[in-house]
Nucleic acid binder design. Structure first.
Lengths: 208, 208, 208, 208
DNA sequence: CATGAATGAGTCTTCATTCAT
DNA sequence: GATGAATGAAGACTCATTCAT
């Protein structure tokens, strides 16, 4: 992820079974290499090798390295955003406490489902193209949360977008820390309960 | 920050005035290049050039590029940790509300004093060696917060380390988001107040 | 055109109608790609694509890229040589002035009929295998001109081959310059007249 | 010579003795590789190797392959143009016959001084960037010849530029053919005399 | 026979690092 | 000590060619 990158879009739409398998292999391989070697060690050769194919094949599916990285990042972010949007929608008109529980549970579920992947992608999100994708996903999620909060049965928010932003970001902090390994033993076990407590207490200050 | 890096320690202890000035110039130059060109564009030649010296001189002070990056990251993290430790120490035996205010104010002050620098360093922290440094600083800060919380006049924490971790991480989330630019207009203005509100509400749930 | 190229000959003799059409399509496509993308941009894939077939099919007709390029060059050179031979034969026993007019007219006609093609092929002729083909065609044309000159009604040449060589080459110079675009406006319009004047004056110095 | 080529200018001005030697070595090596391997075989690695240095060093002096090729072409063309300009200037106000002799002698002298170099550069001149350089040099020489012709003591030219173009191009044709090896034995020996004869006869048709 | 995905050697170019001056 | 030219391994990417479908 750097430079001006001609096109970040994949070259072929993976319609055929073969293509899908290949793209999927690349996806997995990229995550693995990213984890093991870091962003700068995530070379096209290494990814192709790990995916069991030649560099040439990689370039049959992605026009350049950045497009590959952007693609896996985007897919991940889309998953997360979609999951949160769904949860938020389902929790409309509930109480703040219920909203919080659903949000935290959902967020942890998607983010910690494949911790390796989540962790590996933080590096990608930091770079040029990745930052934009991350920003878009962030905005999308903030909107979903804000919309949900607006319908809270037992609270009123003058500036839902701001509250939603704080909510999301203070949720992401511990999740990220957890993924990056800054966490005492047994932290993860209590993570959900603590986050629910944190956010519930926060949002409850807006109870009407 | 990559590869197995022989030694990440600076070559000379900056005892002499000259050395200190040189190292300082390198420090500044590195941050600037990091900001302008990104991690991968932060080459030794460019850093040396910006610092007004030759590459050869840079290598007089650091055994390799990673050591340089690790050094500036470490210094930054030390600053932050020291500031938080100081604030935490000064707030011992106060009320949860006072603790929260002090902590948030201090954290924002150090992190947002030079936002560019903070942001640039996230990329460094993401790579190999940086993660360890970050973990160490994180642990140090958690300890400081936990120690402070243990003395809270109006609350009791069974597991101060866990609470401290959540506290710190949920503080870092919004700060990071802010640095990375995912923030609506006027977000920063309200940031401090909201974070105080968030953490105060959270810690207050442990009020005795 | 490069490397040691196993065999430069087409794989099949275009006996069948289908083959002929295919080879012809490749011929056209190659010229077009050559013109649009230059020699180095003239890839087998692009040629096949433009010819409306797959790379695999291209390789059914030519053993390698060089053979394809050599083939189109050879065809062009054969055309030119044949035209000149014909004109020279038809002008035997005429006056120097008539010979000159016929030669110039014929040469310009074939070379400028499709200027793009002629130009594109110069690049091909420059490389390895192309030089030999060009040399052969050159020799053939020189012979034709020399034979014609030997029969001139109003002049006598002691060394017809030498005179023919000078004649041909000094004709090719302006033609090439014209094709390559080094030519003032209106140059082309006067080209034929000037070349006739040039060569007539030259050959007339051998008038008996 | 292809693509958009950022900058075609050398990176350092070869002011120091060392630099000059290095650049000179690259110059020679490039010509040699160009001759032996053709334009497409003239790779940066090969050139550096032949010049007895590493690729890195080559890139210390030229920003990319095209700049290297353009530079040697430009130097050659400048030499030729300068020589012709000088000769033309020195022959002002002479007779057509004297002008012709001087022009032909000068042109052959510069072009055949180092035939290898001249020949190798034709391929370079064919490509994108090279064509422009060639066009510029061509125009410069045509102007020089036209200016000279205008002052001819024994002839008058209504359109000196056109005549000069024909003159130059019909001179270049045989020279080029000679360099490319399309020439019977003993051709070169008579070349000068024949070219003088050719051009003198041509220009004499404009005698007043 | 046609197809086009797969291959991988080979290109250009960069950059961390060294060392002669 | 400082300098910066030289090095060359390594990376991104291309493309001629093959071969399973």
């Amino acid at each position: 992820m750097s430079k001006p990158a001609a096109s970040l879009k994949p070259r072929k739409s993976p319609v055929q079974a073969r293509s899908m398998a290949t793209v999927s292999a690349l996806h997995t391989a990229t995550i693995q290499v990213l984890m093991r070697e870091g962003l700068s060690g995530c070379t096209t050769t290494r990814v192709a090798e790990r995916a069991g194919m030649s560099v040439g094949s990689l370039y049959q599916y992605y026009p350049n390295r950045d497009a590959l990285l952007a693609d896996i990042l985007e897919k991940h972010l889309d998953d997360v955003a979609a999951a949160v949007e769904h949860a938020c929608h389902a929790s409309r008109c509930k109480s703040v406490s219920e909203m919080t529980s659903a949000l935290v549970a959902t967020f942890l579920a998607v983010k910690l489902r494949d911790p390796e992947e989540s962790r590996a992608l933080y590096a990608v999100a930091g770079e040029r193209g990745g930052a934009q994708l991350a920003a878009r996903a962030h905005a999308r999620i903030v909107t979903a949360i804000a919309d949900m909060l607006s319908t809270a049965r037992d609270a009123h928010f003058d500036d839902p977008a701001m509250i939603a932003t704080i909510t999301l970001d203070s949720l992401m902090g511990p999740v990220r820390a957890c993924l990056e390994g800054h966490a005492p033993d047994g932290f993860e076990a209590q993570l959900e309960a603590q986050l629910v407590r944190l956010l519930t207490a926060y949002l409850a200050t807006y109870r009407r």
